[in-house]
């Protein structure tokens, strides 16, 4: 190993780590607000990457069908729930809006030739298709059992993940896909060559992290989410509805996942089932952050990226083992430092 190789490995590790960091942040966000361990987080990444690829390959975008289907289910559930609760007809505004979004993305996805429209339109449409999946998944699968023990929530999350993978195979097919890079340029920095797409990944991740930080510190919605994460009951007493908090955190998670998918799709081949391993590494980062600290989790995720990159160089056969072994010292250190923790179940 010489300096050049180390530099390139480091660069590779930072690129992966940036994505893992984004996923770690959204996993912590959803977990702290709703207690759901968001196993399907990786699916947002793969769905958006594959949607981009479908558009660039001139194929119709069929993911909208899933959005519309879930939106219709959410609408029915809202109407039924309101009847039971208030014995009256209440306009289910959110789910009606989502049904409208579903209709639009199905219509546009099947008719508009996005391959001729340029990348900005493709990105916009991908976000419009993938992001609504976040609140919809929350409404349909998690909201009815929001008060269940976290183990039940975890099992439902795994079930949703498995179902989404099956849906992904149906919608996108078994083939891997990659998309065109935002720009082809290669920057030579001393001995290292840096592909500009790598800079995009790092730049977008950094921007998104800063934007999230501002959102939580400054905006009212962000503060409400923080309150809900800090003390669910207290937040409810001051008027922050748990449904709102859950929906918003899942929307953010879907947005983060979709953006990650769009930026990584040009540098790797994404399959319908690639999401799990990607989000699993995000989990490792999230656990290093003790499922609560965004900044520690982001640093942890960068560490995961570096470990992965360098361990692959030394022993490619064992790289996953080495990466997941990182958990052991972290868990040990955490439990030694904290002593016994009271179980909230």
């Amino acid at each position: 190993m010489n300096a050049q190789i180390a530099l390139m490995l480091g660069q590779d590790g930072v690129t992966s780590g940036a994505i893992y960091a984004l996923l770690a942040i959204s996993i912590i966000l959803v977990f702290s607000v709703t207690r759901i361990l968001l196993v399907p987080q990786g699916e947002f990444v793969t769905f958006s990457a594959l949607t981009m690829a479908a558009m660039q390959g001139g194929r119709p975008v069929r993911l909208g069908v899933l959005v519309l289907g879930l939106a219709l289910a959410a609408l029915v559930m809202d109407v039924v729930a309101d009847r039971q609760r208030y014995r009256a007809w209440i306009w289910p505004k959110t789910s009606l809006a989502l049904v409208a979004v579903g209709l639009v993305v199905v219509g546009l996805g099947l008719s508009v030739p996005f391959d001729r429209l340029g990348m900005l339109a493709q990105i916009a449409f991908t976000l419009a298709t993938v992001v609504p999946l976040g609140p919809l998944i929350y409404r349909v699968f998690f909201q009815p059992i929001a008060a269940a023990p976290s183990l039940v929530l975890l099992m439902v999350a795994i079930a949703v993940h498995v179902a989404l993978i099956g849906g992904g195979l149906l919608i996108f097919g078994p083939e891997g896909a990659r998309t065109e890079p935002f720009s082809d340029a290669v920057i030579e920095l001393g001995p290292a060559m840096i592909a500009s797409q790598t800079l995009w990944v790092i730049g977008v991740s950094a921007l998104l992290t800063i934007a999230l930080g501002l959102f939580f510190e400054v905006s009212l919605w962000g503060k409400a989410l923080r309150a809900a994460a800090f003390n669910r009951l207290g937040a409810e007493l001051v008027g922050i509805s748990p449904e709102f908090a859950g929906r918003t955190s899942m929307t953010l998670a879907a947005l983060i996942g979709a953006v990650s998918g769009i930026v990584v799709a040009p540098i790797t081949t994404i399959y319908y089932d690639s999401g799990f391993l990607i989000s699993l590494k995000g989990f490792v980062g999230a656990i290093i952050g003790a499922m609560s600290s965004f900044s520690v989790a982001a640093l942890g995720a960068l560490l995961v990226g570096q470990t992965e990159s360098f361990s692959t160089f030394w022993a490619s056969t064992y790289k996953e083992i080495i990466v997941f072994t990182l958990l052991l010292p972290v868990l040990l250190w955490r439990s030694l430092r904290q002593g016994s923790v009271e179980d909230d179940e």
């Binding site: 590779d12 540098i267 399959y271 799990f276 391993l277 692959t312 160089f313 490619s316």
Partner: peptide, 20 residues
């Protein structure tokens, strides 16, 4: 002799090892 799995998102490390 390098190995990878289908879902790996980056093979830069294996590539560098081979090139070296």
């Amino acid at each position: 002799q390098e190995r990878f799995t289908r879902q790996d998102t980056s093979l830069v490390a294996q590539g560098l090892k081979i090139v070296s």
